[in-house]
Design a protein around this nucleic acid. Structure first.
Length: 710
DNA sequence: GAGTTTGAAACT
DNA sequence: CAGTTTCAAACTC
């Protein structure tokens, strides 16, 4: 099965699995329109209110009879997943040959929509609601044509429903998708042939036949496909369920393609790699699929999911309150969802232009980039934007329903930033515990190219980015500051001595010897992790966390045990973390407490030094800048006049900068309590330096000028 | 850069 | 749980 087992779900860290905060996400926009397909060039960058494309409430209405609808609805209801929420978007299939779904299938699709909220997707499962048909899907010549052709009727219907018209209509054997794109150029997506019998209904009805296969956009979400068994009389075989999976994926693909390809401009997104869809950090509608929901740990916080464009099985998740990046393994599950996009869509996809679709509360940016381009893209630091990139060609899983073989640690205590990746050749039951940072590493290594050649072309994982406070540190601190390389020699980097290992990272650019903290030694690494967890279940949890209730300050979870350092050196973990020792510390001779004069002095000196450095740097930078600017302005004079004296360069700006340097020097002397004589000496010395710089610059300018004239 | 110091982790 | 050893980072020269 490719669903996340409840057991594993419950074992996942709360930070990941927590979906409480996202429950009250509005199902539609206040005005009732769920899909705002009208492009908005000057719309704000998707951060606050955006939700992923899939958050569009989707209902796929087949041409089934009312009775069948009722059955389907009953089936959905029986699954207990129907929320009864409105379905702002509906795909009313006027194309029986393609989308005539049996009730159970319809129900399954609806179910799938619900669970496809992995990426914050909010496909409603409120049952199959009969809506107008903003989407009209038609089978046609194994192609989907995405263009701007509008169906007036559908358009009107959509408008009346507050939904922008997006129509997939029948036209021979093509799927004509009327989009909101501006290009006006039809985008044809080639659908696989079905043995000369276009349409899916036949396929659906035939368990032995292969479901049509498409390139599938899954929004990085796991597709929790629950076979509808016993629900309202709907019985599905496993094979049927598999086919339904294909169907649902296919249909999602249609919708997403329609949406994501329809806006070839407006690239507000921070581009990381591959295709991206902005996902709102704020809200996602339900907790049916917490793994990708962008809800957060409380209030405005949200998770960041960064599936690799080149590593389609990995999603990187930033969890507020944690300085670690969680990475969730998602596995391609639907073999039948392979296929190929072809035709004009190919060129469209290679335009590398971000596509943004505003869909009510949803704003998506999907830069369509060729796979090769994706591979070449270097990872970029996280920014404030929330970016979600979808992998259009595969479904994703969080974890397999089957337990980990042999080693099955408590997932809650796995090293922070751990991904359970399928082991090579291991299908869905073998795993590699991969540090989140390895996602980045993978992107920088030839590994990444494997993904695009692994049968999942042009992946575009879902990526979200957000500036989050992580464990008291700003995101910029946590993301921009590279971990120091370790120097382990004897531990094989498989002990907590190794900072890399202790932080759940692979060694990268380290100076270690005999390192086993890498993917090549995954077995040993797993074993080591298990050993550590056996010894201390909290081994991989952050040591610095909040104190007792009511205490706002961070504190060490265990406390230090210093004896000789006075807790005022970096030997002390408390001091190193820039926190004071607490009552749980067992240190001797501690000087790292609030009123400690030693600590105050130390802090004061450190602050003063930092300020001095900053000021001096600023002053010198300014001086250099002024001189350079002056040189630029005086060069013509020099070149024409045959040379100028250095004092010519002493303009007002240079004078001011020089004075700042001198003042800084004076402050420095004062803070060091230097005698007046010494202070004067320091100032004069600095003045001399300034003069030398001016003279040097003047001379250099003259020389440069002379060389230019030559 | 080599050697020393230090305290956390690992071990007994 | 306490004492000891191992280890790698922090620090000093």
């Amino acid at each position: 099965m490719d669903v996340v087992s409840p057991e594993l779900t419950s074992l996942l860290p709360d930070e990941i699995m927590d979906t409480e905060a996202i429950e009250d996400i509005p199902q539609s926009q206040p005005d009732g329109s769920a899909v705002q397909s009208q492009p908005s060039d000057d719309a704000p960058v998707p951060m606050e209110t955006d939700t992923p494309v899939a958050s569009e409430h989707l209902s796929l209405c087949s041409n089934a009879t009312s009775a069948e609808h009722a059955k389907a609805l009953a089936a959905v209801t029986a699954l207990g997943i129907g929320s009864g929420s409105p379905l702002p978007i509906s795909i009313s299939s006027t194309l029986p040959s393609l989308l005539t779904l049996k009730p159970a299938m319809a129900a399954s699709i609806a179910t799938t929509k619900t669970t496809d909220s992995l990426t914050g997707t909010s496909f409603s499962t409120g049952g199959l609601q009969r809506l107008t048909a903003p989407f009209t899907i038609s089978a046609a010549n194994h192609q989907i044509i995405l263009n701007k052709v509008a169906s007036s009727q559908a358009t009107e219907a959509a408008k009346s429903a507050g939904i922008s018209p997006q129509i997939i209509k029948q036209e021979g054997q093509k799927l004509l998708v009327t989009t909101i794109g501006k290009s006006g150029q039809p985008i044809v997506l080639q659908l696989p042939h079905t043995g000369g019998k276009p349409g899916l209904s036949q396929t659906f009805g035939d368990n032995k036949s292969q479901a049509p296969q498409f390139k599938v956009v899954t929004i990085g979400g796991r597709s929790e496909l629950k076979p509808v068994v016993g629900g309202a009389g709907n019985q599905l075989t496993t094979l049927q369920a598999q086919q339904l999976k294909t169907v649902q994926v296919t249909l999602i693909c249609f919708v997403l393609l329609t949406i994501t390809l329809s806006e070839p401009h407006n690239s507000n997104m921070q581009s990381i790699s591959g295709k991206k869809i902005a996902i709102s950090p704020l809200k996602t509608p339900s907790k049916v699929n917490p793994s990708v929901t962008m809800g957060g740990v409380g209030g405005s916080q949200f998770k960041t999911i960064i599936p690799l464009a080149s590593q389609p099985n990995v999603q990187q998740i930033q969890v507020p309150g944690s300085r670690f990046h969680y990475v969730r393994l998602v596995t391609a599950t639907t073999a039948s969802s392979s296929g190929h996009l072809s035709g004009p869509s190919t060129s469209s996809i290679q335009t590398a232009k971000p596509m943004v679709v505003s869909t009510g509360a949803v704003r998506m940016s999907v830069p369509i980039v060729p796979a090769q381009t994706i591979k070449q893209m270097a990872p970029k630091p996280l920014t404030s934007a929330t970016v979600v990139t979808t992998t259009p060609t595969q479904q994703r899983l969080i974890m397999p329903a089957t337990p980990l073989p042999q080693i099955q640690p408590n997932f809650t205590n796995l090293p922070p930033g751990t991904v359970l990746a399928p082991a090579p050749g291991g299908g869905n039951v073998g795993y590699a515990v991969v540090p989140a940072q390895y996602v980045t590493q993978l992107q920088q290594t030839p590994f990444v190219t494997l993904a695009s050649s692994s049968g999942f072309p042009a992946s575009a994982g879902i990526q979200t980015q957000a500036r989050l406070p992580l464990n008291g540190l700003s995101t910029s601190e946590t993301t921009s500051r590279p971990r120091k390389p370790c120097n382990c020699t004897k531990s094989q980097c498989l002990k907590l001595y190794c900072d890399c290992f202790a932080n759940g990272e692979f060694c990268n650019n380290c100076n270690c010897n005999n390192c086993f903290n890498n993917l090549e030694h995954e077995t040993e690494r797993l074993k080591a992790i298990k050993t550590c967890l056996d010894r201390n279940p909290e081994a991989f949890k952050p040591k610095i966390g909040k104190g007792k209730e009511g205490e706002s300050d961070r504190r060490h979870s265990k406390g230090c045990n210093c004896k000789r350092s006075g807790c005022l050196k970096n030997y002390c973990e408390c001091y190193e973390a820039k926190i004071m020792c607490s009552s749980i510390c067992k240190c001797i001779g501690c000087k790292n407490f609030e009123e400690s004069p030693e600590r105050k002095t130390l802090m004061h000196l450190a602050d003063a030094a930092e300020v001095r450095v900053l000021q001096q740097t600023a002053a010198k930078t300014k001086l250099s800048s002024q001189i350079s600017d002056l040189l630029m302005r005086t060069t013509p004079v020099i070149s024409s006049g045959g040379g100028r004296l250095p004092y010519t360069f002493v303009t007002k700006e240079v004078l001011e900068a020089t004075c700042e340097c001198l003042m800084e020097q004076a402050k420095k002397a004062e803070q060091a309590h230097q005698p007046q004589v010494e202070a004067e000496r320091m100032i004069l010395e600095e003045f001399g330096h300034c003069l030398m710089r001016i003279i040097s610059s003047a001379g250099k300018a003259k020389a440069d000028c002379a060389s230019i004239n030559c």
